[in-house]
Simulated assay, not measured.
Amino acid sequence: MRPPVLQAGAAGNLCPRRSRRRDPDRTPKDRPVKVSDLHASICHALGINPNKEAMTPLRRPMKLVDNGKPVAERFS
């Protein structure tokens, strides 16, 4: 049994017919979630500190999440 996988992609310009039909009012009005917030939520769910810095192979620090906050509503 394989573990679940989260995939993301953008087909905005690759499929113009589909994007023309898309309803512009489908965006959330009350609390839109940014990508960095999603990353911070995933780190929080896995028990990883989202503010941690990892070292790249070139020995440069890299933030795991760039200015993201976990979505508290998902974990209440």
Rank of each mutant, 00 (worst) to 15 (best):
A8E: 10
P57Y: 09
F75I: 14
S41R: 00
M62Y: 06
V35Y: 00
H44K: 05
S41K: 00
A10R: 00
L6G: 08
G68E: 04
D23E: 15
D37L: 01
V33C: 01
R18V: 14
G12D: 13
R18F: 14
K69W: 06
V5M: 05
R20C: 11
A45E: 11
S19N: 08
P50V: 04
R59K: 11
S41L: 08
P28W: 06
I42K: 01
M55V: 12
L64K: 01
R20T: 11
D37G: 00
A40L: 03
M55F: 09
E53W: 05
E73M: 09
I48N: 02
D23V: 13
K63C: 09
A40C: 06
L38S: 06
R21G: 15
S19W: 08
G9R: 02
D30S: 14
F75D: 12
E73N: 07
T27P: 01
R17D: 10
H39N: 11
C15R: 02
K29S: 14
A45H: 05
K29I: 13
S36T: 12
E73I: 10
L6R: 01
N49D: 15
P57I: 10
M62S: 06
P4S: 07
R22I: 12
D30H: 08
L6N: 04
A8Y: 07
S36H: 02
V65Q: 00
V35R: 00
S19Y: 09
C15P: 01
G68W: 02
L38E: 06
P50F: 03
A45R: 02
P57W: 07
F75R: 01
I42D: 03
L64A: 08
P24R: 03
P70L: 01
G68M: 01
P32Q: 02
N49F: 13
R26N: 13
L64W: 06
L38F: 15
P61E: 11
P70Y: 02
P50H: 03
Q7F: 06
D23Q: 13
A10E: 03
R20Q: 15
K69V: 15
L38M: 15
R21M: 14
Q7W: 04
F75M: 13
M62L: 09
S36V: 11
H44V: 09
D25E: 15
D30K: 04
R60P: 03
N51C: 06
G47V: 08
G68Q: 01
V5W: 03
P4K: 03
G68V: 00
R21D: 13
L64D: 12
R60Q: 15
I48M: 05
D66K: 00
M1G: 15
P57F: 10
P50Q: 03
I42F: 04
M1L: 14
L14K: 07
M62H: 04
L64Y: 07
M62I: 11
V35W: 01
K52V: 14
C15N: 12
L6D: 07
M62N: 04
R20D: 15
R2D: 15
C43R: 02
A54R: 14
